[in-house]
């Protein structure tokens, strides 16, 4: 199994992408997609990517749902800040938070989440100190932002743990 599919999730994802792009589940498409998925799986083996094992599917779904809500909420919040205009300039600032995630893929996912929610921007992660420097657009309450990142961290730790 491992020799054929060094990264099973990646191969499954590639097959899914191929089927979606072709918009069909005909046998020919599935065959072509499987060949591509296996071949590209071998190619990525050369890159030596970090392996991780996300197990808790239910938790992942719940995490995705909370993120979707957070994205909507922060979209509205940032839009409000922009429309408020120059009368009350945003009180932006830098924050640091300690993040204890060893899994590289979990870190990458955290970066995607923090960029996808407007209002927080990932700036610098120090691997040795395990601390993350990020920028917050509207810092009315520092505690809230740090708690949000901590909440994401805890969820990712459970998923990839």
């Amino acid at each position: 199994m491992r020799t054929w599919f060094p990264y099973p999730l990646l191969s499954a994802g590639l097959l899914a992408i191929w089927l979606l792009l072709n918009q069909s589940v005909a046998p020919g498409t599935i065959l072509m997609g499987s060949v591509l998925a296996t071949g590209l799986g071998w190619v990525t083996l050369k890159l030596g990517l970090a392996r991780s094992h996300p197990r808790r599917v239910l938790l992942m779904l719940r995490f995705g749902f909370t993120i979707a809500l957070d994205i909507i909420r922060s979209n509205l919040a940032v839009a409000a800040v922009i429309l408020r205009g120059r009368r009350r300039p945003p009180n932006s600032g830098f924050l640091t938070v300690d993040i204890d995630l060893d899994d590289e893929n979990a870190l990458a996912l955290l970066a995607c989440v923090m960029t996808a929610t407007p209002g927080t921007a990932w700036l610098e992660y120090d691997r040795l100190r395990k601390s993350l420097l990020f920028h917050v657009l509207d810092m009315e309450n520092e505690r809230v932002w740090i708690d949000t990142v901590k909440r994401y961290e805890a969820a990712l730790k459970e998923i990839f743990g």
Binding site: I72, V78, A79, G85, A121, H135, L137
Partner: peptide, 26 residues
């Protein structure tokens, strides 16, 4: 559009980092 307006209105580079993410998420 609001994201693009934000890009114009914000004054510092780090604030401007936030504005385009409106378009790429919402």
């Amino acid at each position: 559009l609001i994201g693009s307006v934000g890009l114009l209105r914000f004054t510092s580079f780090y604030e401007r980092l936030h504005a385009p993410t409106l378009a790429t998420s919402g």
